[in-house]
């Protein structure tokens, strides 16, 4: 039977795009900051900012997903560790476990630094919690297992970043989503946005407390990630233009929309790439250009997921 209609879905919209964005970026922020501290240079401030902001992003994203559930009590089945044994073929089941253990490992990894931080101890509620005997004991124990906790966070963080793409890939009816490049694109974007966020943190909040070489390294890595993202986007464009009508219509929806072309491709990828290149080659100095470029990368990261959700075209034989 012939295909007679094409349509997009209206169940997972902007709030789900925000979940994918915050989930991928939050996980990558934790992975990048922990790897930096463990294998490049001791950066306790970066770890604390990475862990706390990453956990906040993951919490906010997961919270949005939770609010949208029809039957919230049933979420207990994916939060228990044995849930994954029951449904090992479901990416949401894996993703929920990754996010849960990532948040726990990230907080425990950063806790030994937090209980020693005078400024944090002066905060109204958090300071009182950090001064509690039990929290100090947990921090002392966590300090002994910090490498293990770091690797738990890195593995589950990588899993979370990849999962955000694997989830969309598991929907066979939509050509745009059901292909192996989606997890690659979403993972590259997650790490690019995480670099952007950490650059903002390092330039705006902890400029004098982080070594300049880390900032310089992040800028260079982000240039590589944005370039990789542009290559994957270009290959997507070619892929969707031939092969199936559903893919072609997705391409039409994306490339005829100024939000995708100007918002994501131009302002979210190309302009920040040029700005970061000028900063790296010393043409532009100061904080403003790199912070502006990073903010554009962040907005691009959200727009990518927003338009990807909106442009998934279903082909129906009715």
């Amino acid at each position: 039977m012939e295909i007679m209609s094409y349509t997009t879905q209206d169940m997972w919209t902007w709030w789900f795009a925000l979940y994918l964005f915050l989930g991928g970026m939050g996980a990558a922020v934790i992975v990048v900051s922990f790897l930096t501290h463990m294998y490049l240079r001791e950066e306790k401030e970066l770890v604390m900012w990475g862990a706390l902001s990453g956990v906040a992003m993951l919490g906010l994203g997961s919270g949005m997903l939770f609010l949208h559930l029809l039957h919230k009590w049933a979420a207990i089945y994916i939060l228990t560790p044995w849930g994954i044994l029951h449904k090992p073929d479901s990416w949401i089941a894996w993703g929920s476990q990754f996010i849960l253990w990532l948040q726990i490992a990230a907080v425990l990894f950063a806790l030994p630094f937090m209980v020693e931080k005078p400024r944090l101890l002066r905060w109204p509620i958090i300071g009182n919690v950090l001064k509690m005997e039990i929290v100090r004991n947990v921090a002392a124990t966590a300090a002994r297992f910090q490498t293990l906790l770091g690797w738990v966070a890195i593995i589950t963080g990588l899993g979370t970043a990849v999962y955000t793409g694997l989830l969309l890939q598991s929907f066979p009816a939509v050509v745009l989503w059901h292909n192996p490049a989606v997890p690659i694109l979403f993972t590259v974007s997650a790490f690019s946005t995480s670099m952007a966020w950490l650059l903002i943190v390092m330039y705006v909040f902890i400029y004098h407390r982080v070594d300049h070489t880390i900032r310089a390294l992040y800028e260079r890595v982000d240039i590589g990630l944005i370039t990789a993202e542009l290559v994957v986007i270009y290959s997507f464009f070619n892929y969707t233009l031939s092969g199936s009508e559903s893919g072609y219509r997705s391409a039409e929806l994306l490339w005829n929309d100024s939000g995708w072309v100007l918002g994501f491709v131009v302002c979210g990828l190309m302009i920040p790439l040029v700005m970061e290149l000028r900063c790296v080659f010393g043409r532009w100095t100061g904080k403003v250009p790199i912070v502006t470029a990073s903010m554009l990368v962040l907005s691009g990261g959200y727009l990518l997921r927003h338009y990807f959700m909106a442009a998934g075209v279903y082909a129906y034989p009715w």
């Binding site: 029809l70 039957h71 279903y314």
Partner: peptide, 22 residues
């Protein structure tokens, strides 16, 4: 229905538009 949390992933996965939220 006692196990379903209503994440609606099934509705997006279905190529036949067979699922809806109750």
């Amino acid at each position: 229905e006692s196990l379903c949390m209503g994440c609606q992933a099934c509705a997006l996965a279905c190529p036949y538009k067979a699922r809806y939220p109750y």
